[in-house]
Design a protein around this nucleic acid. Structure first.
Lengths: 142, 142
DNA sequence: AATCTAATGAAAAATCATATCATTAATAGA
DNA sequence: TCTATTAATGATATGATTTTTCATTAGATT
């Protein structure tokens, strides 16, 4: 995907082999990863800690990575398709799905009236059970 | 306010002088505080680090404190009035207001259909300019 | 190829968070 | 009030995480 290269260039950064590995890792992690997890996952692939921190920041900047708080409150990074998506985190297995629907405009208007703020954006995270975990009644996965 | 004491007791904790100081500190901080900020703010009042970490967790548990990510992405804790409120963070000065309006039920239904998840809850943060900072056109405060 | 610029990762340093535990304070019961 | 009980406190130690620094390497440009 050469698109990524262009997006990196746009923010004055190069799309290198290491950065590609970092991105691939997140794409293959449906529950997202904390940074320490990403670091240890790529230790054998010889990608350094510093590179991972920098790449995570860059991927967020170009809208390919967002963060969620999982069921335990841990800050995890999850691959996403666009700068503006609403993640939903499974409270049982931690799997994250992406929701493109966004109908917050009404709420934003109300909010503006209520608080006097000019709304510019938001972060919205949902928590719930994924289809699989909804079926297993009270069994702890992972 | 003796209400707080009851709330602490309900979760098996005591409402002590130190915990009161921590709570007061957050009540007087419209932009919220990171934990290290709270620690240094209370150093002269002789409240220890451990107590602050524990109290922050307790205040969250009883719904008097919520977290936001400020304009710089920093995790800050802000006093709030109820367990379910939607903070809005000023992107200029960082001041946080509380929004009680919650009309996400429609969105939650759509989301359930789109992803197959059973929605149980959410976290919603708005970003925007407060009334004061909306007036000053392009001036960086703080 | 030569030049320039950015990326890399090892190491050190700084920061942040948790665990341990002796001491102190708050509560409940007599 | 006095005592017993239980939880809170905070100093210290420890561990985890994040950032900084910098010599080296790789990628882009001419």
């Amino acid at each position: 995907m050469d698109d990524l290269k262009r997006q990196f260039n746009r923010i004055g950064m190069r799309y290198t082999a290491q950065r590609s590995l970092v991105h691939q890792l997140f794409l293959g992690s449906p529950c997202g990863l904390t940074i320490p997890e990403a670091v240890s996952a790529l230790k054998d692939r010889r990608v350094g800690e510093t590179t991972i921190y920098r790449t995570v920041r860059a991927l967020q900047e170009i809208g390919r990575l967002c963060w969620v708080h999982d069921h335990k409150g841990e800050h995890r990074y999850v691959a996403c398709g666009s700068r503006h998506s609403h993640p939903i985190v499974c409270t049982v297995c931690g799997k994250v799905a992406e929701c493109r629907t966004c109908e917050l405009s009404v709420l934003e208007k109300l909010l503006g009236l209520e608080t006097g703020y000019t709304v510019e954006g938001h972060h919205l995270e949902f928590y719930g059970k994924c289809a699989d975990c909804s079926r297993l009644p009270a069994q702890e996965t992972q």
